[in-house]
Design a protein around this nucleic acid. Sequence first.
DNA 1: CCTATTTGTGTAATTTGTACACAATCTATC
DNA 2: GATAGATTGTGTACAAATTACACAAATAGG
Lengths: 240, 240
Amino acid sequence: MQNTDTAFEIPASQRPAVTVDIVVFTLQERELHSLLIKRSYPPFQERWALPGGFVKLDEPLDQAARRELEEETGLHDVYLEQLYTFGEPSRDPRTRVISVAYFALVRADQQTPHTSNESSEVRWFPVRELPQPLAFDHDQILRFAVDRLRSKLEYTTLAFQLLPQVFTLPELKQTYEQILGEQLDRGNFYRKIKEAALLEPVGQVRESGGRPAALYRFRAERREGDFVFRWREARIERDR
Amino acid sequence: MQNTDTAFEIPASQRPAVTVDIVVFTLQERELHSLLIKRSYPPFQERWALPGGFVKLDEPLDQAARRELEEETGLHDVYLEQLYTFGEPSRDPRTRVISVAYFALVRADQQTPHTSNESSEVRWFPVRELPQPLAFDHDQILRFAVDRLRSKLEYTTLAFQLLPQVFTLPELKQTYEQILGEQLDRGNFYRKIKEAALLEPVGQVRESGGRPAALYRFRAERREGDFVFRWREARIERDR
DNA sequence: CCTATTTGTGTAATTTGTACACAATCTATC
DNA sequence: GATAGATTGTGTACAAATTACACAAATAGG
């Protein structure tokens, strides 16, 4: 840490700008989507970009992320988690901008984003069909967020933040499959979920073409806290 | 992201300062230690603090971390990884300072830190006996780093960055035990390590009071990359 | 009432984790 | 130089978890 006051003689003009950018995920039609806004001004005019903006001088970082997200898209009360800080000097052609990236999860049934005076267009894109390239280094940030979401899914209850309040086991399984990108065994998946005692039956069913599926909700006391269960053994040689 | 140029009309005086702080870990006498420097000036005069300092306007964040670490302690060529960004408005009493925290790992046999004109005193402290409180929010940052190190140890080869080039299996096991804070079974540990094919026998032995231990080095092709093996199953209910 | 479809449960085979015993190799001591 | 003590290294039986797959249950449609 700065250990002399001389450090504070750095002229304010020499200070970098600090922004927050938010990667918002949701599920739509059983596919993982991310929210992008279309830029109206240069640089990267007409390109799609992550929502975000400048951190105010007296504002905590996560609060800045929530504020910018609501201002630009209307989304609020989302699950929010800091992702990584991107600070390459050339990432913004205008000036030095250091961006603290966040990722957010929203239930699709809950809110619909809207444009604002700051954004000409706001849209959900399937993460498998993003408009490329995005503005700035937002491609990189988004990839980073997808990787993080995928790996945290295996040892947290993050998936629940993407589902409606009430859902079926097949829907939960499909959520996992969508994000992990692989098929899971129904029997093993159901057993693991039930052993973790995360769910509470609602007592109703939902039709689905065959046998109706029972509806569940999450047990409130399990909502918070990061770790609840591990879907399966980490794969040896995963990242190669 | 900022999507109008008006955002850049924010006066530079309204910009926060950005620093990097580095939590440096090493092993000394088989205990995990962290490097602190004593502050010579207010605020927090005479308190111990993490090494760190201001990010220059045209400098990548990780480069800033390496530069500050070398300037303040002389340590260089360390393993470095971004940890988290701390941005509470009140964390520095003078002005808004956003700190991108890093954690670094060094082999104790390799380098010894020295003071500089910026630091009156530099010392390794066992993480179990830190001088408290530290300056700023550095207690929090350090706890955060220890937690991260501990959890990453279970699915990465980070422990290797703390050991000398050449080491024995008992030494490796002790490193894991120190950081995880629990005893491991020798037989099971050896088997896991050997199955992962991470090590290469050097062909020599080191005396240790009883039967000498064989020396190993890491296989170069396994040095990089994050994931290599998982020491063991994640503990259910870990974070509660 | 039969078939197709989807949900939900059961179970055998395999793999992995755990606990602990025992052999091997050195030092120290008498 | 024999023996005890200490530490490294290997083997193995048992428990637990994972995997793969079979089968029963519940509904719709013809």
